[in-house]
Design a protein around this nucleic acid. Structure first.
Length: 260
DNA sequence: ATGTCGTAACGTTTACGA
């Protein structure tokens, strides 16, 4: 089963680029972030025509996540538990059953957190604590778990082209890295790092200042696997090439192949 | 030093978030 995460930065502006990539990459499941629309504004019928089941958790203008799946989506839940007052649409879960295993799949758009310090950074850290709690709870289940999305965390200096430029940023601050590490320490595997070592592997390049042309990128989109899911991992790659196409998102897809 | 997008709205331009 091929499972991808892709921050599309607005579905209205990305229908063509997303559809082209889906047709080529043929993921079984695509977790989308920053759909930037309410549920009714998401072109579900278009993706159903491409063979996908669609589940969305949107809001007006900002944020918003979705799951596209060639296999049926079961037990869909929306929103990250732990704060009834949180109205930002950043989290969705569903179960997808393959030939050999049923996977609990979580799509997430973690808060950016800038400027830091400040209330937005506090919200990011609180959200990460809730995500850790959810990850811990999911580990108690019998199912393999995939938690993938835009984590807005640069895990280590080697995950940035210019780490010094990000040192004080909410994406790379020690508190953000520690919170990410605390989730990994529950027993999750960073799928990309399980297969590829070293610098120079990025998932985001800013639109500004020719970042793509200069390969001035950061690795902030991640696929985390529970131990049962990590046992199924056969490949993990970043589709960086599509960043150079017409009307690209500022992020590119990351995908895993699981023997599920 | 700056460089860009996408979305919404009291819209032909500005504000915000990233």
């Amino acid at each position: 089963m091929k499972i991808a995460t892709f921050n599309i930065n607005g579905i209205k502006a990305r229908i063509a680029a997303l559809s082209d990539w889906l047709a080529e990459a043929q993921p079984d499941v695509a977790l989308l972030q920053e759909i930037k629309t309410v549920d009714e504004g998401f072109p579900a019928a278009h993706f159903e025509d491409m063979g996908y089941n669609v589940a969305t958790h949107g809001q007006k203008g900002f944020n918003g996540v979705a799951i596209l799946s060639k296999l049926p989506l079961e037990d869909v839940t929306r929103g990250l538990p732990g704060d009834e007052a949180d109205e930002q649409a950043r989290y969705i879960e569903a179960t997808v059953t393959g030939a050999h295993a049923a996977l609990r799949i979580c799509g997430l758009y973690l808060p950016n957190g800038n400027p830091a310090p400040g209330p937005k950074f506090d919200y990011k850290l609180a959200w990460m604590a809730r995500l850790r709690d959810r990850a811990h709870a999911l580990l108690q289940s019998e199912e393999p778990v995939v938690m993938a999305g835009d984590y807005n965390v640069i895990p280590a200096d080697e995950d940035a082209s210019r780490p010094e430029a990000w040192a004080d940023d909410a994406l790379a601050r020690p508190q953000s890295r520690d919170a990410f590490r605390r989730i990994l320490n529950l027993g999750f595997t960073d799928a990309f790092r399980a297969r590829t070592r070293g610098p120079g592997h990025y998932t985001f390049w800013d639109y500004q200042a020719g970042a793509w042309r200069r390969n001035d990128g950061i690795r902030i989109d991640h696929v985390l696997l529970s131990p049962q899911a990590a046992d199924l991992l056969s490949d993990c790659r970043i589709d960086s090439e599509i960043r150079g196409r017409e009307k690209p998102s500022d992020h590119v897809p990351v995908w895993v192949e699981l023997d599920a």
